[in-house]
Amino acid sequence: MKQSARPYVPYVRMRDGERTRAGGEFDPMSTTARPRSRSRRNASAMKMVGALLATFREAAGHTQRSLGEQFVVSEQQIASIEQGRRPLKPDLADQLDDLLDTKGALTAALAHMPEVDLVPLWAEEFLDREREAIAISSYENQVVPGLLQTEAYARAVFRSRVPFHGEDTIARLVAARLERHRILHGKDAPITCFVVWEPVVLAPIGGREVWTEQLCHLRECSELPGLMLQVLPLERTSHAGLNGPFVLLETPEHQRLAYTENQRGSQLIADPDEVAILTQKCAMLRSQALTPEDTRDLLDRLLGEK
């Protein structure tokens, strides 16, 4: 016998933790209702939950359309949830667990989903491409490039972020950043060029001890084969990097990509015309910066003054 469709009706949480469906005895407009906090979406975890839903749906013999019909939810909405483009609401997860007999798996997955990604989804592709790149060029005018940061310096950078991170989150972020350093020391390390604005190496981020250690690390990295470190002098009256930092990558297939960041996000650029503009800027910056030899001399002078 065909099951009748059950409309998806969201739950409303009350002060004592009990739940009832909206439209029942509990009045959601009552002053006793506790407003639900707005959680921040975790894009990669949303994709994981969506894939879990798709697995349970297929195991139960449902299509996206037939599952949606059970709750008067559109096929497109089910598809969006499964693709990680739309969050699965806790109340719908409860009802899906009941229908698909998942033993509460969807509800548990939502309950343990972190609020924000350790590595945001928009940066994951860049990190994947960075790991396989055969050439990396970078211009930085805010902090030491991540691939060249010491553990203490990276921790100081993450502690400066606003909104503030907890210490556990900072520890995970630092570990992820240090893991990237393997790129420079592997058997097939890429050719790398880093142009850094002079104020970056002058700013004592984290304090004098952390700063001195970071300068020593930069000096050591400057001797790595295939790595060129150049400081762009503060005394220059103009230069090609006024629009901010960027990274250029060349893949094993010789595709050229660019990556840029701003205050609230970043973008990976594949458009050849846009990449060409940043490539021209990079070439100009390298010509405007100190040579690698003069950069090492500058670092030696700074370390000698400590």
Rank of each mutant, 00 (worst) to 15 (best):
V116C: 14
R13D: 09
V116W: 06
L285V: 01
Q255A: 11
D117L: 01
R155W: 06
D94G: 06
R85M: 04
S37W: 06
G24R: 15
A108E: 11
R131W: 00
F126H: 11
T279G: 08
L100T: 04
K47Y: 02
D188N: 15
Y8N: 11
R129V: 09
E140L: 00
C193V: 10
V201P: 01
A123M: 15
Q230I: 06
G23W: 08
S74C: 08
A22I: 15
N42K: 03
A135S: 06
V174L: 13
W211S: 07
E261H: 07
E75P: 08
A258V: 01
E179R: 15
R236D: 10
G304P: 08
D300N: 09
L92D: 02
A289T: 03
T107V: 13
V201C: 01
D91S: 12
L110E: 07
T31V: 12
P225Q: 11
T107N: 10
V12H: 06
L215G: 01
L218W: 00
V116H: 15
E213Y: 03
A203E: 12
A283K: 11
E167G: 13
D188H: 13
R65P: 00
V12G: 05
A33R: 15
Y11I: 14
P87K: 02
L299S: 01
A270V: 09
L106P: 02
P145F: 01
A43S: 15
G166W: 10
D91R: 05
S44N: 13
Q214C: 03
V73Y: 07
F56C: 09
D91E: 04
S287F: 05
V116S: 15
P252Q: 09
V119T: 14
R155Q: 09
R161H: 10
Q76C: 13
A276P: 03
